[in-house]
Simulated scan of single mutants.
Amino acid sequence: MTDYCPVYAPFFGAMGCTAAIVFSCFGAAYGTAKSGVGLSAMGVLRPDLMMKAIVPVVMAGIIGIYGLVVSVLISDGLKMKMALYTGFIQLGAGLAVGLSGLAAGFAIGIVGDAGVRATAQQPRLFVGMILILIFAEVLGLYGLIVGLILNTKATGGDVQC
């Protein structure tokens, strides 16, 4: 093994794969749980709005899909012998999508909880809640885009192992 291709290089790629799925699913789980609590509380007052108010739960679930996509793509590039550069880039890609998914899930959970409770009292607030949820969701999408770009750069190293 050379200095550019140490035996521990795949570890960083595996950690990127893990970070992508774990952190984004933490965000999705928090967003689902938090907005689900608000949905349950709202359903007691206005059961007729249940299907309309399930939007935050669906949006939180999408965050987990972002992590899954990047995790699968990173795992496809893992090899027994790989450049340290590739491992670091894969770690960066996983952290980018994972941590932005975590942040987006937190935002969706908090907005979803308060938004569906407020919508139960004043239905005209629904459109405003949806707009705020879209802005929260796009934070995870930014991480997905950066993760995908980084993952395409991972195979571009000049070092052959």
Rank of each mutant, 00 (worst) to 15 (best):
D113N: 15
D113W: 09
D76E: 10
A104S: 15
K81G: 03
V116I: 10
K81F: 10
A114T: 00
S100T: 15
G92T: 08
G94Q: 10
A118P: 05
A83V: 07
A120Q: 10
A96Y: 01
R117V: 15
G115S: 09
I89N: 01
G105Q: 08
I108N: 02
A96P: 06
V111A: 13
V97N: 01
S100Q: 11
I74H: 00
G77I: 00
G77E: 05
L73Q: 09
G87A: 10
A114S: 15
I74K: 00
G98L: 07
A104C: 14
I110W: 09
G112A: 07
L84T: 02
Q90K: 02
A96C: 12
Q121V: 14
L91G: 07
A83L: 10
A107K: 14
A104Y: 14
G112N: 07
I108V: 13
Y85M: 11
A83Y: 08
T119G: 04
D76P: 01
L102S: 06
A107L: 13
L78I: 13
G112Y: 11
A107W: 05
V111D: 01
G109A: 13
Q121C: 11
Q90A: 07
L99E: 10
T119D: 08
D113L: 15
G98C: 06
A93I: 02
V111R: 09
G77C: 07
G105I: 05
K79S: 06
P123A: 07
G115R: 03
T119P: 03
L102V: 03
K81I: 04
R117T: 14
A83H: 09
L73C: 06
D76L: 12
G94E: 07
G109Y: 12
L91Q: 11
G87R: 05
Q90D: 06
A107F: 07
T86C: 11
Q121Y: 14
L91A: 14
K79H: 05
L102R: 00
V116F: 09
G92M: 10
F106V: 15
G92W: 04
M80D: 07
F106S: 08
L73I: 05
Y85D: 14
I108S: 04
K79Q: 10
G105Y: 02
Q121P: 01
S75D: 04
Q122A: 13
